[in-house]
Design a protein around this nucleic acid. Sequence first.
DNA 1: TTGCGTGCAAACTGTTTGCACGCGT
DNA 2: ACGCGTGCAAACAGTTTGCACGCAA
Lengths: 146, 146
Amino acid sequence: MFRMTLQRQVILDELRRVCGHPTADQLYDRVRQRLPRISLGTVYRNLEILAGQGVIQRLELAGGQRRFDACAERHFHVRCSVCGSVGDILLDPRGLLNEMLPDSSEFQITDIHVEFMGLCPECKDRPTAVAPTAERHSTKLRRKHS
Amino acid sequence: MFRMTLQRQVILDELRRVCGHPTADQLYDRVRQRLPRISLGTVYRNLEILAGQGVIQRLELAGGQRRFDACAERHFHVRCSVCGSVGDILLDPRGLLNEMLPDSSEFQITDIHVEFMGLCPECKDRPTAVAPTAERHSTKLRRKHS
DNA sequence: TTGCGTGCAAACTGTTTGCACGCGT
DNA sequence: ACGCGTGCAAACAGTTTGCACGCAA
């Protein structure tokens, strides 16, 4: 098996505690409140290891950052097209591949990834003009050079 | 409308000429053979503009690089899980969203992205042990420091 | 002539990795 | 005692952008 260090434990714990599907640096921010000296590299490394062990799930979604899910069972996700936040979809994925299997392709199809797009609860109630992307860059200010 | 510069034209032309769904720098390599002084930034800018106009399609797939498709009509794609190359799927996407629409979610679902995974013709005939990722890094050697 | 589009380089984001050290087993 | 896992920083890949200039309309 693998060693359960304090860092690993806190990372896993915080991932489970969060509602949602945080990116590595969102998780880093939370973990840092409990382990101020942890490094972002460690967070990445541990998420990778935990995902490799099947303890957590790495989300293979389109769009910028990688996200992680404390629930390792396969299920679908929705991504908010305004703020980028991700939610779960309650729908049984089994059998979908057979159902949808394309009739002709030179590729040998082995799997299917489905990703829904939509508006999260917060963004759908908001008049369209308001500043978006709050979630995506919440912890980092974009610096412009000179 | 938008200005049709030579660069724009060549980029579009090469995208149409390629069989496949090239990344920006794959396209850059081809375009450079006709316009040696073009810059990668220009390729990105033009691909963005052309996609914005609906002339071409930007692929919203999982996994590393962004890819582009000369065909702007919506259709599905397969990604080779070994080499990363992308193929088309002949399957009518219309109606799929309604068919698959999840019954409950706090998100307001507006769209669905489907991506098939599989093995491309070349990789599926290859004994599993052989060096993969040929396509993904074809034009760039990975440098290690020190 | 005007200003959009280019080439260039540098900055930026997200992720990975070499290294030395220190902690868990 | 050993070696895995850490913190740190730098490197990396992919993409974007400020700037000055030049070409298309």
